[in-house]
Design a protein around this nucleic acid. Structure first.
Length: 153
DNA sequence: GCCAACGTTGGC
DNA sequence: GCCAACGTTGGC
């Protein structure tokens, strides 16, 4: 069992969207490191903190879980109409793969970034490191549990 | 809107 | 393979 943090802009796809949909394919990721995490390091049942970036305020807002046992090809890479279309991707060996996420819970209250920063237990959390822009990050078990604790209110 | 930090691209 | 230029991310 591993733990992750998924960033998303709530204007694009929020925790409420995930709650409504119950599950969603996490497509549109075009960063190799994030892709590698999804392709190689995730397992069904892994737990994910859902984080709203570019929000007011930016905050951890809930929990999702990895639904798919295996990575799946990102369909947007083959869709010429998509902003994520990648003409160099070979359908027989898709460059971009991702996972399906399922809604788990919405926190009783969002935990703002500023509050995450102040918590000594989260000092090493990758999200909080300077210059960190990756949209999918690993968390330790204790970091995951602490964020959930804060979100429980 | 600003800008620091980072990733990617492409010329050489 | 280097690295300058450019685009993007994302907090503030």
């Amino acid at each position: 069992m591993k733990y992750w943090l998924f960033k998303t802009e709530p204007d694009a796809y929020s925790i409420d969207d995930l709650k409504r949909d119950r599950s969603t394919i996490w497509d549109g990721i075009r960063n190799y490191q994030a892709r590698n995490s999804m392709r190689d390091d995730m397992s069904k049942g892994d737990l994910c903190v859902f984080y709203h970036s570019n929000a007011k305020p930016p905050a951890a807002v809930g929990v999702a879980t990895i639904k798919s046992k295996d990575p799946v090809a990102d369909p947007t890479q083959f869709d010429p109409e998509s902003q994520y279309f990648d003409p160099k991707s070979d359908p027989d060996a898709p460059r971009w793969v991702c996972r399906v996420l399922s809604f788990k819970k919405r926190f009783a209250r969002p935990v703002p970034l500023a509050e995450l920063r102040e918590d000594p237990a989260l000092a090493d959390m990758l999200l909080l490191q300077k210059g960190q822009r990756l949209s999918i990050l690993p968390l330790t078990a204790s970091e995951f549990e602490r964020v959930c604790e804060l979100g429980a209110g």
